[in-house]
Structures are given as C-alpha cells and as structure tokens.
C-alpha cells in the first residue's frame, strides 16, 4: 500500500526555544482512516498544520503525497493543497461569499468548468442536507450548518487526503453524526485518506481506523 504521509525524526516548533513535537516517526497509508488524539496543547493541531504545509518542520523530514514539506516551494505547496480537503473547527468560510460559492472554491482553484462546478455544488448541498439554504451567507447559518458547508467544501474536489481539525467540536449530535457519516463515506467509497484530530473518537464509526496519541511531544500508535 502507498504511503501518503511519512514522518522521520520530525520536530515542530513555533519558535526556536519551544519544541511542540519532538523527533517523531510515523507513516500513514493511502486509504487509512486515522484519528490523532491528545490533551489540549499537546500538539495535535500543530501536527495537522504541518501536514498541509502551514508549518514547516524544524528538524527531520515530512513527506506528504510525495512532497517534502521542509523547504517546499510555494507553487509545489499550492499543487499539494489542491489535492487536500481541510476542515477546521472554526469552519474558515469566506463570510462575504454565499455558501455555494464557498463550496465551489476548491473546484474553481482546480480548474473545473463553471457548469460542472455548479452541478457538483448542488449535489454536495443535497449531500450535506443544506440544499434549502442555497444562496445564503455563512453567518446566516447555525454553527452546525456552517461546519456542514465546510465539510462539503473539503469533499468538493474529491481530494486524496482529508485533514479535519476537531470537526465536531461544539456541534450538535445531528450535525456531528452527519460529519462522521460524510468522512466515513469518503473513506469507504472513494478510498480517501482521512486524518482527524479530535478529543473523542466516536463510538458509532463503521470503518477500521488507526489511532495515534500525542503526549509530551511524542506520538505513539494506540492498538
């Protein structure tokens, strides 16, 4: 099985004085469903940031989709990000755009024709059960609905890798279940690699998953 992510002696830090992740080694195969857990401030989100190149390794090597993140050029990083779908706890939707335009963003970046992109957006809005909200702006929706829009955006361009940073934190049960179903669906039907940073692993998940736990700057697989 192809390895989507390979970390060798990876250290991550925001400043030279404080290292958050210290010389960790791990790999993730294509099509894996992975949970990363750990206490608050343990470095889960920091690790996720490094996976989409927002934080460069301080030491060691991190290869995502065949791209070495350390010293990666802006153009190569853009190319990598076009194959990744990201979901944030704070949604990161463009407030001045309608939800359909937000979902369309990765499609337009990936060069989809407008008519194809429109069809895909309609399909996704139905998929996340928000087709009745078309044309609305993010701030006109509830938190759960905004996260479903963010989820639809992450799935829009059929990415090979989905990174989700506490996607169900602060969500109601209905929206949380919908988000987990969508992530499960992407993984089982499209073989998309899914990496989720979370505090709690849902008990109702119907896929095999890997579980990494971060503690004191180290990462270990929980069996």
């Amino acid at each position: 099985m192809d390895k989507v992510i390979i970390a060798k002696d990876l250290s991550l830090a925001y400043s030279s004085s404080e290292t958050i992740i210290n010389k960790v080694n791990f790999s993730i195969n294509s099509g894996n469903f992975v949970f990363i857990t750990g206490a608050s401030g343990s470095g889960k989100s920091t690790l996720l940031k490094s996976l989409y190149g927002a934080l460069k390794p301080k030491q060691g090597s991190l290869i995502v989709g065949g791209v070495e993140i350390k010293g990666v050029s802006r153009a190569r990083l853009n190319f990598l990000r076009r194959h990744i779908g990201i979901v944030f706890q704070d949604y990161k939707l463009v407030k001045e755009w309608t939800i359909d335009k937000n979902i369309m963003l990765p499609l337009l970046i990936n060069g989809y024709v407008k008519s194809v992109a429109n069809n895909q957006v309609d399909k996704l809005l139905k998929h996340v059960r928000l087709n009745h909200q078309i044309g609305k702006f993010p701030l006109e929706l509830s938190g759960g609905e905004q996260q479903r829009v963010a989820m639809a955006r992450a799935l829009a361009h059929n990415p090979v890798l989905i990174l989700a940073d506490e996607p169900t934190g602060n969500l109601d049960d209905y929206s949380s279940q919908l988000i987990w179903n969508l992530l499960e669906g992407a993984n089982s039907q499209l073989n998309t690699t899914v990496i989720v940073v979370t505090h709690n692993i849902p008990k109702t998940l119907n896929v095999d998953y890997k579980h990494f736990h971060i503690e004191y700057g180290s990462i270990h697989e929980v069996c």
């Binding site: 990083l77 990598l80 990000r81 194959h83 990201i86 990161k92 963003l105 990765p106 990936n110």
Partner: peptide, 8 residues
Amino acid sequence: IMGLFGAA
C-alpha cells in the same frame, strides 16, 4: 482561506 486550498 483561498491559499489553504492551493489557490495561486
């Protein structure tokens, strides 16, 4: 946000 999705 556009940069996070790889926009040039």
